[in-house]
Amino acid sequence: MHLDHSHDGPAAVSADAVRPDGRRRALRIGLGGPVGSGKTATVAALCRTLRDELSLAVVTNDIYTREDAAFLLREAVLPPERITAVETGACPHTAIRDDISANLEAVEDLEDEVGPLDLVLVESGGDNLTATFSRGLVDAQVFVIDVAGGDDIPRKGGPGVTTADLLVINKTDLAPYVGSDLQRMERDAKEQRAELPVVLQSLRSEHGVTDVATWVRERLAAWTAA
């Protein structure tokens, strides 16, 4: 018995950057955040924006239904074979952080079946402010909150708000209707996150998902160059 990591085996056992066939695997980006903050809508918008320039696929983690995957299929943002749903047994954070095996298999199966892929988006089930992705599963993570969930969320911080590689404050168009102070949210977020970027977004505006898509392209360029 030896405990050293082995690269000789017939299949990947971890988040190795190189697939068993020697090709570099796709960049994996996780999207997490509270229930109803607009994770699925952001994924759908990213797919529409990026699908003509990149080969991409999506893994959804529904908590007790298949609605997120069904939404993406219904909206036809990608061909059905490029969307996979993982079941999480009432614990969405476990499947993206503590026991990532089902998600890793979903990602690898997508690369085997519809690859080569440039990008895989892994959407977590709606969770709480502590949900973060394991670095064994994704290369970068986006945390999505929305203005209607309360404008004190950035101030409260927590692992998602504080450490995600990109924080998205979504549904800015609703701010006047729910009494949320956008400037305060942005200021609090920047205080919590130091140098890490923050995007304020309304998918109903013309600008839509542009800023997040730009960030994804930058991450992909860095991944490809590495």
Partner: peptide, 24 residues
Amino acid sequence: KLGRQMMRAARSTWPSPELDALAA
């Protein structure tokens, strides 16, 4: 499905030629 997940965890934790052979 659970066997595949156990295989990933086992190969990563206690690598062995026997596990590699079955995974192949």
